[in-house]
Structure formats: C-alpha cells, structure tokens
C-alpha cells in the first residue's frame, strides 16, 4: 500500500513552474529521501503533500493516507517544515505539550519525557525556548513533529545544521519511527545521509523528476564507471590522463569518471607514472557524483551541493 500517491501534479507560481507533471508513490513503512538543488521543487512537493499548497487544477491528484483531502490539518501526519520556529517565551515542556494536544493526543506525558530523555533535553525541559542552542531547538522541533506518533512523518531538511552527535541521534530516531510503523519522507542536501538511510531516493531538478528508486537501481543506471584512487606524490593531476572524463578531487583521494569503453588497466598504468598508487578501486558513482552530474553538468569541479 502506498501512503502517498502523486499523479501528474503540476504547481505553478505565477509564470514559474515549481513542480512539473510529477508522479510519485511512497510505500508504507519506507524511508523516502527527497534530494535536489535549492529551488528545484522539493519543499513545494512536500507542502503539496501537506496540503499547504494545492496543486494546479489541471487534472493531477494527490492521495495521502488514502484520502484526497483539501485541508492541511491532519492528526495522522507529523510535519517539520524547512523554515521553522518555536514560541520563544514558552518552556520546552509546554511547547511539546501544546503540539501534542494540538494533534489531539491526550496521554502525552510519558512520550514527552521519553523523547526529552532520548535527546538529552530532560534538564532543559523547564527552560524557555530562547535559552536553547540552535541544535537543541531543532531537536525540540523534531520532537514536536513526531510527538503524536503520526503514521506519516514529513521532515524538510531535518539534519541541516546539526553536529555529528545530534545527527546520529536524529537518524536513530527516524529509523525507530520506521520500525514502529511510520512512513518517513525527508528532504536533505546530505548525500551521505540519503545513501545510508533511504529505502528510496527521489531527485527533483527544475521541477521535474530525474531520479526515483532504490540507491542500487539508481547507481545501476550509471554502471561501474568510477575509479576511486589515491596516489602519493605532490602536484598529482590526473586531469590529462587519456580515458578520464572528469575528476572529482577530494584532496586525499580522487574520483575519476572513466569514459565508456576505456580499459581501466591503462589508467592504472598512467597513474603509476605519477607516483605510488596507494588506493585503486573500481566502483559505482556515489549519489553525490550522480547529483552533480545532473544538477551541474558543465562543471569540472565539485558541485556546491
């Protein structure tokens, strides 16, 4: 069963087409990652799923949890918008109680305590929001989105601005939500997170769907065309090597995209002339690389995604 079904939906703002003839199905119990450059239509799509925006009336449909409703408010959906804020003068516990009650939940005290404990916020529970650090506030916001145990959780860039410890805590929490039966949709700019966490990845670019599927199926489209190499020696530049289409230089190692039909052995030989080869691996392109190939095809440098 699909929790979200989007069929041929278009959304325009004035003359700008934000989302163009989009179809998408999110299966129950999955973690679905939305990626795409800034301004490509991720948030618009999420907002349409939330019914905050209504799609153009050109025949498309959006079914969420089996309903085609026209109202944003839904107690079965938890939502963490990209632009987020909390009442600054309220205490952490009061904010969470407010959102739990607003979602129609009555027995929330234990859940609030558990979530605060989980995110190490218990000692902050009687502090006002404006005394919290940014990371803590973001965790409080995440709790407020999931406190009512929603069936569908929609998180717009939940990981942005979090340190690794908090990122791990949040990732654990998202995985637990899935384990307890919720479906999770989140958008992210962190390709590593998307690769590791998402059952399905959806990429939107200029309002159009460009990728949709499991990581493996997406990578399979591109084949084993990538070499990850490390070579000792200063001033190493693999740029000029025959058969290398493109170089992503990460500093300590490089990713080389191999032109179709080129024997990787010849590249290894060329590399060895530059210095001692300490790492040589033939692999699928990373999601990051795929992203950059789509979103920034002309660049020879790392995309700024």
């Amino acid at each position: 069963m699909n929790v979200v079904e989007i069929e041929n939906v278009t959304k325009t703002f004035g003359r700008h087409v934000a989302v163009d003839d989009l179809s998408l199905a999110v299966p129950q119990g999955s973690i679905y990652g939305f990626i795409g450059p800034n301004g490509s239509g991720k948030t618009t799509t999420l907002r349409m799923i939330m019914r905050i925006y209504h799609p153009d009336s050109s025949g498309g449909h959006i079914h969420v949890l089996g309903e085609e409703s026209f109202q944003a408010a839904n107690d079965r959906i938890g939502y963490l918008p990209e632009e987020r804020g909390l009442y600054k003068k309220m205490k952490v516990r009061e904010v969470l109680r407010f959102y739990a009650e607003l979602k129609g939940r009555r027995d929330f005290h234990q859940a609030v305590a558990d979530w605060l404990e989980r995110f190490e916020l218990t000692e902050w529970s009687d502090k006002k929001i404006d005394t919290l650090s940014k990371g803590m506030a973001q965790k409080v916001q995440f709790i407020s989105a999931v406190i009512a145990q929603p069936e569908l959780v929609i998180l717009d860039e939940p990981f942005s601005g979090l340190d690794p410890v908090n990122t791990d805590a949040l990732r654990e929490a998202v995985l637990d939500l899935r384990r307890s039966g919720s479906t999770v949709i989140f958008s992210t700019h962190d390709m590593g997170v998307a690769e590791k966490m998402c059952d399905f990845i959806f990429m939107i670019y200029k309002g159009r769907k460009v990728l949709d599927g499991t990581l493996e199926s997406i990578q399979a489209q591109y084949g084993q065309d990538t070499l990850r190499v490390a070579v000792d020696g200063n001033g190493f530049d693999p740029q000029g090597i025959d058969g290398v289409e493109r170089v992503n230089d990460f500093g300590r190692f490089q990713e080389l995209r191999v032109a179709p039909g080129v024997d990787t052995q010849s590249i290894l030989t060329a590399l060895m002339k530059h210095g001692r080869v300490t790492h040589f691996e033939q692999t699928q392109p990373s999601l990051h690389d795929i992203f950059v190939r789509i979103a920034d095809p002309d660049s020879e440098e790392n995309g700024d995604a």
């Binding site: 939330m50 408010a73 939502y79 918008p81 632009e83 987020r84 804020g85 959102y99 607003l102 979602k103």
Partner: peptide
C-alpha cells in the same frame, strides 16, 4: 508568521 511557527500550526489545525 515571522518565527515560522504558522506552518507547523497549520499542519495541525485549520
């Protein structure tokens, strides 16, 4: 509106 609270609220209440 300015603190971006409205969007969360509207996800819960018309």
């Amino acid at each position: 509106k300015m603190q971006r609270i409205a969007e969360v609220l509207l996800a819960s209440i018309p």
